[in-house]
């Protein structure tokens, strides 16, 4: 399906959602990250915790996505990436992204975020260079895709908070997860 079609679907899906102020989200998230930085000694473990929280959100969020977005099964991973960029991000976070930089096998790409509500009011001091502030979003994507049997890796590679021109998430397809049925009699 076309990009335009997905953009439209994203708009429609977002318009049907109950809303909350983006500033409340930004402030809450900022204070949560501050709390994690206070509780944990290493910045890397804050990144891990943020990703984990995102993952927990993603595995639940995907149900609502499938129920309300009106999007059918994706044809291939390229299709999946477009749906995330144009529909899923729009529906929940009210932003869209461009999908670029495909590798030749069509298993890895880059999502270029047009905006990020989590970054509102945020300034990272130089000592926080190792912090992946928006890592929660990557966790949500990983968790959501895992529920539809796709294992992916997902992480921020560029971030406007660190002085880059754009915020970019690297998304890479790993494998299709097989559902394993164990017969208890055996």
């Amino acid at each position: 399906m076309s990009r335009q079609h997905y953009l439209k679907a994203g708009e429609v899906a977002f318009s049907k959602m109950d809303k909350v102020s983006a500033e409340l989200l930004a402030l809450t998230y900022g204070s949560l990250v501050t709390q994690l930085l206070k509780d944990k000694e290493e910045i890397e473990s804050v990144n891990v915790q943020l990703e984990k929280m995102g993952y927990n959100i993603g595995i639940r969020l995907v149900d609502e996505f499938l129920a309300k977005s009106g999007i059918g099964p994706c044809q291939d991973f390229r299709d999946t990436a477009e749906v995330i960029a144009k529909v899923a991000l729009k529906m929940f976070l009210n932003v869209t992204a461009d999908v670029t930089g495909w590798n030749s096998d069509l298993t890895a790409c880059t999502l270029v975020l047009h905006d990020n509500p989590l970054n509102e009011f945020v300034e990272l001091p130089a000592s926080m260079a190792g912090l992946k502030y928006g890592e929660l979003i990557c966790g949500v994507i990983r968790g959501g895709l895992e529920q539809v049997h796709m294992r992916v890796s997902c992480t921020f590679v560029k971030d406007v908070l660190k002085g880059d021109d754009t915020s970019e998430i690297a998304l890479e397809f790993k494998e299709i997860l097989k559902e394993e049925f164990v017969d208890e009699d055996e």
Partner: peptide, 8 residues
């Protein structure tokens, strides 16, 4: 700006 209540 607004985001979805679900995400929040």
């Amino acid at each position: 700006g607004e985001v979805s209540l679900s995400l929040y």
